[in-house]
Computed example of a mutant assay.
Amino acid sequence: MTSIKKKDILNCIDYCKQNKLFDKLNKVYSNVPSGDCAGCGNCCMESVGINLIEFINIFEYLNENKELRKKSLSNVIDYYFLEFTKKSACPFKDEDNRCLIYEVRPLNCRLFGHWKKEDYNKNLSNVTQRNIEYNKIVKSKYGFDISNEVVNYKIKYCEDFIPQNDYLSKSDRLGFADELMTLDSNIYSKGIIDIEFKDRGIVEYFIDYFFNEDVSYSIKIRVTKDEDVREIAINRLKKILL
């Protein structure tokens, strides 16, 4: 059984449409200040954290374009199961550095560039330290090291992005996040989806849609440790799932 059931997602989509939660989500998005972005795609290099309402919104968007769905989710599978061996770009970035889901891109993507440099670099240091600690846990439990490229990869502060007005303060950024948490709480409180409330990246949401969490992680460990089965296993998963 998967961690996130398809019938629950479909029920959530219906609920969000009936109660205009997607409209409320888009209103939050529209209030994020704009800025001048060079479009280099250097920031699109991770499984960015998203909210439940955002996952449901992206799921519905992909359902309306089957070709885009297959391409994107194939990239998602590659990203997740190769995550310990190499650093990959966001699975929703194409070969021309364009976002495949730009219209429904998550809040964290919209906020990138709006940070003050000192705030951003402080957060970046915390992320790197968490990566180092997680690598120690994996090494102790499974006997291998996550690739140094992955552990030490940093999405550098963007000097080229020019915000519309001024940079957002931490409280401003958290204010947008709180609004999405309120929308999430509305969905959870109705009991229409049976998943654990926790932080997930966009990749992890879709992987939990495909698999039970323990199963997907077990496969990930196996293909990381056994290079001979890696390509065969991943291609087989794609044939089954897509």
Score class of each variant (00 low, 15 high):
S3M: 13
K6D: 12
C12M: 14
D14I: 13
Y15K: 08
Q18C: 09
K24I: 01
S30L: 07
N31H: 15
P33Q: 08
C40W: 06
N42R: 09
I50Q: 10
N51V: 06
N51S: 15
L52R: 03
L52E: 03
I53G: 06
F55P: 04
N57Q: 02
N57I: 00
Y61H: 12
N63L: 12
E64F: 00
K66I: 10
L68W: 02
L73E: 08
I77N: 01
I77R: 02
I77L: 14
T85N: 14
K87T: 09
K87H: 14
A89Q: 12
C90L: 11
D94M: 07
N97E: 15
V104N: 01
R105N: 05
P106H: 11
L107E: 07
H114T: 10
W115S: 07
K116V: 04
K116F: 07
K116G: 02
K117L: 00
K117E: 06
E118R: 01
E118V: 04
D119W: 09
T128Y: 05
R130Q: 07
E133L: 09
S140M: 12
F144N: 00
F144S: 03
I146A: 14
S147V: 04
N152L: 11
K154T: 12
C158T: 03
D160I: 08
D160G: 02
F161K: 00
Q164H: 09
N165M: 12
S169F: 10
D172M: 14
R173V: 12
G175K: 08
F176K: 01
A177I: 13
D178H: 09
D178N: 11
T182F: 10
N186L: 14
I187L: 04
I187N: 02
Y188N: 07
I193P: 05
D194F: 06
D194W: 02
E196L: 12
F206E: 01
F206T: 00
I207S: 06
Y209W: 08
F210M: 10
N212P: 00
E213A: 12
I219M: 05
T224R: 13
D226C: 10
D226W: 05
E227R: 10
E227N: 13
K238P: 01
L241G: 03
L242S: 00
